[in-house]
Every structure is written in C-alpha cells, then in structure tokens.
Nucleic acid binder design. Sequence first.
DNA 1: AAGACGAAAGTGGTTGA
DNA 2: TCAACAACTTTCGTCTT
Length: 304
Amino acid sequence: MSSENKREECPEDMIIFDEERGEYICLETGEVLEHHVIDQGPEWRAFTPEEKERRSRVGGPLTPTVHDKGLTTVIDWRDRDATGKKLEPKRRLEILRWRKWQIRARIQSSIDRNLAQAMNELERISDLLRLPKSVREEAAVIYRKAVEKGLVRGRSIESIVAASIYAACRRLRIPRTLDEIAEYTKAGRKEVARCYRLLLKELEVNVPIADPIDYIPRIGSQLGLQGKVMRRAAEILEQAKHKGITAGKDPAGLAAAAIYIAALLEDERRTQKEIAQVAGVTEVTVRNRYKELARELEINLPPQ
DNA sequence: AAGACGAAAGTGGTTGA
DNA sequence: TCAACAACTTTCGTCTT
C-alpha cells in the first residue's frame, strides 16, 4: 500500500504513533501515514522455515499476558459431553474430580497463583486505559521478572502491576502519566511511584527519559487540532530542548505550553483551561511554561 | 461572563550534607 | 535522616476581552 511507502519516506524520528486514534503521524508534514492500526498483534504469516515450524502447532499464539502463556485447556462447566448429551452420574463425578484437579494443577505453585492474579489486574487496568497489546506484553514481561526476583513480597500485586504498566509505557514511549495509571488502583499514586522506582533499580529495565514531544499527538488530537499545529508545537519543543530549558520540567506541562503557543500562532486558539485539562496539569503550569518558552525562544505572540 | 494573569502559600519528591 | 530546593498545585484578587 502507498501508506507503507509514505512511512518509509518519512525520517524515523519524525514519526509519532498516536495510539488514541491508531495512526502514525509524520511530524514533518503532519500527514497521517497509516490509518487504523489498532495494535500489532501476532503476525500469522511465516516467511522462513523456522517460523513455519514455530507456528505450525495448534493453538493460539504464545502470549506473556496469560499467566501460563495461553497453554491451558479449559474444561467446560456444563455437564454434557461433546454431543450435548447429559452425562451419567458416575461419569459426572469423575469429570467433577478431574475439573477440580485441573484447576489445582493449573494454579499450582505460588508464583503461578500470583501471576494469574496479576495478569487479571494487568488486563483490567490496561482495558481501562485502552493500552495497545504491545504495552500489555511488555508490562507482563516486566512483572514476571519482578516476581522472579521476589520483589512482590510485602507489596500489593496491584501496585507492582501498575508500576510495570507505567514502566512499559515509558519504554515504548507511549505517554501515560503516573496519575492516569494510579487512578485505577487502590494503592494510590505514591505507592505506585515507589514500586516503579524499585523496578528501575532492581531489574535492568532501562527507560528512555520522557520526551515532551511524545505528548503532543495525544493532547493535540484530544483538542481536535490540525496537524500543522502539532508540527509547530513539536518545533517549539525541539528548539527548547536545544536551549536546554526542558530539563527537570513536567513533560506534559511543556507539551501543553508548546501547544498553547502553536495554537495561537496558527490561529487555532484554545483556552489555557482546555489544554491544561487534557494535559493533566493546571492552568498555572501551562501559563508559567508558555511564558518561559516565549521569552527564551523570543517568540512574538499575536496580540489578542 | 469568561479568560488571562500573577502573587502567595502549600505539597510531594529529589538532592546533598 | 534531615533540611534545602525546584517544580507544580491551589487559591484568590485583578485586569482584559
């Protein structure tokens, strides 16, 4: 398809994935490169002999988000056989025992039990946040490592799961704030943040520093802004980064401020309040950041 | 009436002795 | 472990559109 060609034409670092809409967007041209990419699920074509070998077995794809990697058989709860006939009482008892045994075997060790529960949590939170599959799987891998290292002992599964999700988002550069994730946990922001720091320290999970530019497509699309506004905002942030005035600042706040300025310049004005709300910061922060950006970069704002 | 502005005081997290 | 510190928030009165 031509959209694939377009994506190749675009320089790598200028492509941004807007996971809200499932689109790849080029920051240079603002062009939508690929529509409706919901997530990158397993690819079922096999190109090499080994791949064929790996994929020839029956069953779903192996996936780390199911605690046993999706390999269990589930015995139906209905007391009927494959043809739908009711089972004989004796046979029924046998099946009952079998079912019980299978459940025990499935959730055998404490690690497995832990993972089973954790994966439920992971799915729950990921669903609420509408996270793509790639993040869920990354989070599952991180969580698994945490369990294996015994980091969960003494802490709630939920908060470690939330921390894993946050780490996965950061790794894959899918901007989600800690607050958004912590919102769906009982543990609260503070505890999740502590677990997140623990994960960083104890596992070798390296996380790229949060880039405010990553927040632009999300905030921009939620405000219904045109591509040119987002491009302008990205330019502003790029300049700011070179000037070294972005360090230590909340990336969401910086992105919000850049968008505010860009929207003014492009005659697509949005109020500080609107922007602050979707960016998850206050108006005051948007104000402070945008004043600073305008001053440092000597941007002349149009008179209102 | 709504938006923008900035001062002042409070919060939570980081850093360095 | 404690205090200093920067960034951010909350709140509020004032000015502008």
